[in-house]
Design a protein around this nucleic acid. Structure first.
Length: 832
DNA sequence: CCCAGTAACATTTTT
DNA sequence: TGTTACTGGG
């Protein structure tokens, strides 16, 4: 059975593929081959899940280079993630060799940054509202831009209660995604909230310009504006890139759509440049980012916008069993107005989908954990932990899984949530670097002005801000005035002195930048000289210890970046960057280095570290005792593009998945359904679906009926391991039943939870734990205690957290690693 | 200026 | 229920 999967030519992660040029087409099906070899005009490849879309893209590029003698420098491939870009480049290099490195393969955003930095001079001349922009501009992420919007809204006396900054930010972002200027927005604003946002928008843009900064949306929008405003620039890129390829096309928003159109062109230019060959690959059924501005319209109307476009459908799936595909097909078929597409495979029916109805979320987690245990134990099945993924709709659902996985000692990893570069200490440190690279960066400057505390309080900051406003100078310049003549700005001597010391500090650090010190050294200096590290060192808050570690990690990242840039940017990037810098007249390498590091950090998400099905995650410097890897937990959204032999789809309940918020909104419900489709189609061999009759939502027990998506899976495909009890209180499906189930603490003894409790596993009942935990002797541990754990062996308690049923201890088990364990109930561990 | 208490909030999030 | 952001007292 498993050989069926191993032998499929498709899974691009499997096995070495090194076809010679002639063999670029050998292992492709007809549709794939057509897509690879198609010549001319625009090509739309509608690639169903698992149909080998990445393979088609990479082969097409390889084919262009090897067979059609296209120069690599003429190829631009655009993706959404750095990971996808790196992967694509790597595979093309595997196919045709290193010269492929001369291609531009990058994300939309990275590509735009590259163009904007390169053309900064033109930009300042040509574009209204960009005269303050230089090539060392900062990139503001969502958090930065929200801060700035917050400042602007406050200045405009907008009530943050009625018009929360995040709402304003979202609205402005939407407008930018639609390429709407502040004027357009003003004209279009229909509601009160929109009018407020339209008031904020122009001022926000002004402040961005003043800060020499672009937000994420600007990167795209301003590039479009640049291409439109400057025929020379536009012509340059059109001539240069004769082949434009776009991955995940269904996720493009309007601005990105126009960007691609501007880059590739629709007709011959005056100077005789023909439109580039444009190849876009996507799947409307996997469009799950409409809430961020992605519009299916781009794919659905591709043919209308490009009347001569050719379309190719990839429907043969090389990933999943027919059972899984049939389920996915049946669910997605309920969406109206879609292009009919039915995935199929010749690899056989496979196992039935397994369904489970749990009493509550803890029972559901117990079922999942138990099942994973069984799958991995079953040597004949041959599954490793790393073959398994657990999906949920919202991040907060990960908690129960973590709890039980910890209790049972199942190795796991949660992907998503708070990301490294979003941690406060990391952002603080980076803010220093950004100010050093770009002193006009007001948001970063104000962020670190009094971090660590140095006596520049809110009042002083406000005084400087209003002085800057009054004199129409930047905050940074105002700060310098305040440092020399505090009274001019209206400051007490004490504040002025504090500011003077701060300015002096930044000047000192600035010398390091000018001296072309490597980013890591500058960062070290920042951490030392600002007292940031010292402050954390002195703290006895255990969280601060983690913060220190994160900062050390950041230094390491910077160090690696400085020492071997090839680990971060490819050789071609380096060459092109140098070339670009030269073209732009940027001949200050020290700027380039720090700026390059910051750019990297700004445009990189750390989803890049998702452990893949082979279990060798990039930054998995882990302590795993065996090579079985870890179970991966994540939201369905982050699962897009991935695949696992075994997938657990959890929380398939009305109100959870589909989410409550989407009720009554057809378009959003359709997107939820696509999300369900994505979830199912991630599975290669086994798919599990589960739901809980009762789930605590914000402290209150909620009774949730089965998800409509569950009902849409043909019944004959599902083998129910446990169904909803038909007797008793729950049959009515009324909220009052929730009380019965939620409060009763009882569960049928066929539940996974009950089995777990009865089966001698180290567990007490979950729903009754509030009453029970006191009876069960919880292990009382203190820092420094030595313990012996059945699974991990000898260890030392590093820290403890929580109390009562939530008590946990972080224990260093030496070679077995450091593990966080719950102490409630009978842990398989004794205190020595 | 700092912290602690509390009110308000609670999809999804490639960049 | 758990977290985060703000406010007011010390």
């Amino acid at each position: 059975m498993s050989t069926l999967f191993d032998l499929t030519p498709e899974n691009p992660f499997d096995g070495p593929t090194q076809p010679k040029n002639r063999e670029l087409l050998a292992d492709l099906n007809q549709a794939q081959r057509d897509a690879v070899t198609h010549v001319g005009g625009q090509l739309l490849v509608v690639a169903g899940a698992g149909s080998g879309k990445t393979r088609v893209l990479t082969r097409r590029i390889a084919y262009l280079l090897a067979e059609r003698k296209v120069h690599p420098g003429q190829v631009m491939a655009i993706t959404f993630t750095n990971k996808a870009a790196a992967e694509m480049r790597e595979r093309v290099v595997e196919l045709v060799g290193r010269r492929a490195n001369a291609m531009w393969v990058s994300t939309f955003h990275a590509m735009c940054v590259r163009i904007l930095r390169r053309e900064a001079k033109v930009l300042a001349d040509v574009l209204a509202g960009s005269s303050g922009v230089t090539s060392n501009f900062s990139i503001y992420d969502a958090d930065d831009s929200r801060r700035l919007i917050n400042l602007v809204a406050r200045d405009l006396d907008i009530d943050p209660k009625r018009y929360p900054p995040r709402g304003l930010a979202a609205q402005i972002s939407n407008w930018k995604n639609e390429l709407m200027t502040p004027l357009d927005a003003k004209a279009a604003a229909a509601s009160d909230a929109e009018r407020k946002a339209a008031d904020v928008y122009p001022e926000y843009q002004r402040r961005l310009e003043q800060a020499n900064a672009f937000d994420f949306d600007d990167l795209i929008m301003r590039t479009v504006e640049l291409l439109r405003a400057s025929p020379d620039v536009s012509e340059y890129y059109r001539r240069r890139f004769r082949h434009v390829l776009v991955d995940e096309y269904q996720d493009t928003n309007h601005a990105q759509y126009v960007l691609v159109r501007e880059l590739s062109g629709t007709e011959r230019t005056e100077s005789g440049t023909e439109p580039a060959e444009l190849c876009v690959v996507g799947d409307a059924d996997q469009s799950i980012y409409a809430f961020r501005g992605a519009t299916i319209r781009n794919i659905e109307e591709f043919e209308r916008d490009y009347p001569r476009a050719h379309t190719i459908l990839l429907e043969q799936n090389y990933r999943s069993t027919q059972t899984i595909l049939s389920a996915a097909n049946a669910v997605i078929a309920r969406n109206s107005g879609r292009r009919d597409k039915r995935l199929w495979t010749d690899s056989g029916e496979g196992e039935a989908i397994v369904g489970y109805v749990a009493d509550n979320e803890h029972d559901e987690a117990a079922f999942v954990a138990g099942e994973i245990d069984a799958l991995v134990d079953d040597a004949a099945a041959g599954f490793k932990y790393s073959d398994v993924a657990v999906f949920y709709r919202t991040n907060n659902q990960s908690r129960v899984f973590e709890e039980i996985f910890i209790r049972l000692g199942l190795p796991y990893r949660v992907v998503g949530g708070v990301r490294f570069y979003e941690r406060r200490e990391v952002r603080d440190a980076l803010a220093y670097l950004r100010v050093l690279a770009n002193p006009q960066d007001t948001v970063s400057l104000r962020r670190i002005l009094n971090v660590p505390k140095r006596g520049i309080g809110d009042r002083a900051e406000a005084a400087v801000a209003s002085y800057a406003e009054r004199e129409r100078i930047s905050f940074s310049d105002a700060l310098r005035v305040a440092a020399t003549s505090g009274s001019e700005v209206g400051l007490a001597a004490r504040s002025a002195n504090a500011i003077a010391r701060f300015v002096e500090l930044m000047n000192e650090l600035g010398k390091l930048v000018e001296a072309d010190e490597p980013p890591a050294d500058i960062l070290e200096a920042v951490l030392e000289r600002t007292g940031y590290r010292a402050q954390l060192d002195e703290s006895d808050d255990p969280q601060d210890a983690t913060r220190l570690e994160n900062l050390t990690e950041l230094v390491t990242v910077a160090r690696e970046f400085g020492e071997m840039p090839e680990a971060f940017q490819t050789e071609a990037d380096a060459v092109a960057a140098a070339e670009d810098a030269e073209a732009a007249g940027v001949d200050e390498p020290e700027q380039a280095t720090l700026a390059a590091f910051l750019e990297r950090v700004a445009l990189v998400a750390d989803t890049d570290s998702i452990p893949d099905a082979d279990g060798d995650a990039e930054d998995d410097a882990d302590d795993s005792d065996d090579d079985a890897g870890v179970v991966t937990l994540m939201t369905v959204h982050t699962a897009k593009g991935l695949e696992y032999p075994v997938v657990f789809g959890t929380g398939w309940e009305e109100g959870v998945f589909p989410h409550q918020r989407t009720f009554g909104k057809d378009d959003e419900l359709a997107e939820e359904r696509r999300l369900a489709y994505v979830a199912i189609t991630r599975a290669r061999r086994r798919f599990y679906v589960s739901r809980a009759l009762v789930r605590s939502a914000w402290g209150q027990p909620m009774y949730n009926p089965a998800s409509r998506f569950l009902d849409e899976i043909p019944a004959e495909l599902v083998e129910w391991r446990r169904e909803e009890p038909t007797n008793g209180a729950t049959s009515g499906g009324l909220p009052r039943a929730a009380t019965t189930w939620g409060r009763g603490g009882g569960f049928g003894n066929d539940s996974a939870q009950a089995r777990l409790a009865a089966g001698g596993m180290r567990s007490t009942s979950f729903s009754g734990w509030k009453d029970d935990w006191k009876k069960t002797a919880a292990l009382e541990l203190a820092v420094g205690d030595r313990v012996n754990h059945d699974k991990y062996g000898l260890g030392t308690v590093v820290s403890t957290d929580g109390s009562g049923p939530r008590a946990t201890a972080t224990i260093d088990f030496g070679t077995s690693g450091t593990v966080k364990l719950m102490l409630m109930g009978s842990v398989p561990m004794v205190k020595l």
